[in-house]
Design a protein around this nucleic acid. Structure first.
Lengths: 235, 235
DNA sequence: AGCGAAAAGTGATTTATATCAATTTTTTTA
DNA sequence: TAAAAAAATTGATATAAATCACTTTTCGCT
């Protein structure tokens, strides 16, 4: 069951369960045979749009933004990936370059898995194969929802929705009724909502006024998730 | 090579080659074993968002819009599929309902393939399997591009881009220098560009003024593709 | 702890686009 | 082929959001 039992959070998030959860031990070991682990500081880049892939990445712990940069340098965040998610497989599977860039949003522990091991495991493991088909198909629906969101909803609605989604990702040791702390720069929030930083600040101001969020420096505390769901207003 | 040798049309289109092109005969026959063919009139619905899938669809001939409808009834077209493309597999692979609706944009001949045959062929055919992984990964990059388009580009740029993409889809017996005829309602064009019908008419007016398009009733003739590419201005 | 840089926030203004209310043209069908 | 219906177009107006210029606050660092 999703937030308050009513909001369909999986419409907006790739991850229902990790692709690798409960993968048969043999498959898992094959995949991880030559992995390397790295601790990346906040803001470090895993891969860049347009580059050719050498492997895939597994988020052992942390958060990573997937984004595109336009000709003027403006960033558009496509998705925020969390602990347990796999990154960079689209480029390998499409036999093309990375469609987007990826950078850490906080200090993160990342495993790098060489392309060869990924492709070999994919050949061996029909479970991994099927999970990928399922995940990619689900991703389609998430991105289709995002397109509709950007094409048809106001900045206020978009920001409200992204805060709802982020809240799930920033939950730790959550108790019902507890405020969730979202620690993300206004710039990233703007890029996620497809607007300018100033507008994020202003809308966030409205939300404070309405008793929906509190802020302390850059940190945002979601105090009234239900009002936020009302505002997001996306079916 | 893409338009004028420079515009990366595959950034905006799922189809490079059909998933089914040159599929080994045995696999193809297994897949098509119980297919049924149907001629659908313009505007007929293949499937509806939220419904559970009974099979997949193959466009033998024609054009189909994939779209989502919001709570107010407003349509957002996600993608225009053309002859040779497969539809409806996301729902089956994600083991969930259809993420979008599909309706014909013109009279079309559609083959319906039962779910069981699709899944069986998928099990048997590693080629089909790999093609689907590749196609889905490519779709990811196309949708990510769309998100950026809607989040960061003006109505003029979005419409210019969609016209470029549509031009490829509406090409028949094309000779260099020839104007391509796009036959689509202003409402659908608006839904594709994420704006209101009136704005499409106005921007189209500008394009006519600039000698980029001509119109005759609802039909649009693209006469200067290069200017359109300049206007679309998307890297 | 205090300095400097980076990030957040504010206010004023401009601009793009949505919306409303008609009219005209095109297409359909009786 | 005329009438009716649907679609396209036009103009006026309202509104949301982008942009600019600037101030204040926060945070990382030596």
């Amino acid at each position: 069951m999703s937030i308050q039992g009513i909001f369909p959070i999986d419409k907006w998030s790739f991850k229902s369960e990790s692709i690798l959860t409960d993968l048969p031990a043999a498959d898992f070991e094959l995949l991880m045979a030559h992995k390397s682990e790295h601790v990346l500081k906040k803001g470090e880049i895993l891969f860049r749009e347009g580059a050719y892939p050498a492997g895939i990445y597994y988020i052992i712990e942390g958060k990573v933004k997937k984004y595109k940069t336009d000709k003027t340098g403006r960033e558009q965040i496509i998705y925020v990936a969390n602990t347990g998610e796999l990154l960079g497989y689209h480029a390998i599977l499409s036999q093309y370059h990375y469609p987007d860039s990826a950078a850490t949003l906080e200090e993160s522990t990342i495993a790098f898995i060489p392309k060869e091991d990924f492709l070999l495991t994919l050949q061996q493991s029909s479970i991994l194969n099927n999970r990928l088909l399922k995940t990619l198909s689900h991703e389609f629906s998430v991105l289709a929802n995002s397109i509709t969101l950007f094409a048809q909803n106001s900045v206020r609605e978009r920001l409200a929705l992204q805060l709802i989604v982020l809240r799930e990702k920033y939950k730790v040791n959550f108790e019902p009724g507890m405020a969730v702390e979202i620690n993300m720069s206004r710039d990233d929030l703007a890029s996620l909502a497809g607007t300018a930083r100033e507008n994020v600040v202003r809308v966030l101001g409205e939300f404070k006024e309405a008793g929906i969020v509190e802020t302390k420096g850059r940190k945002i505390f979601i105090t009234d998730i239900n009002k936020l769901i009302e505002l997001a207003n996306t079916r």
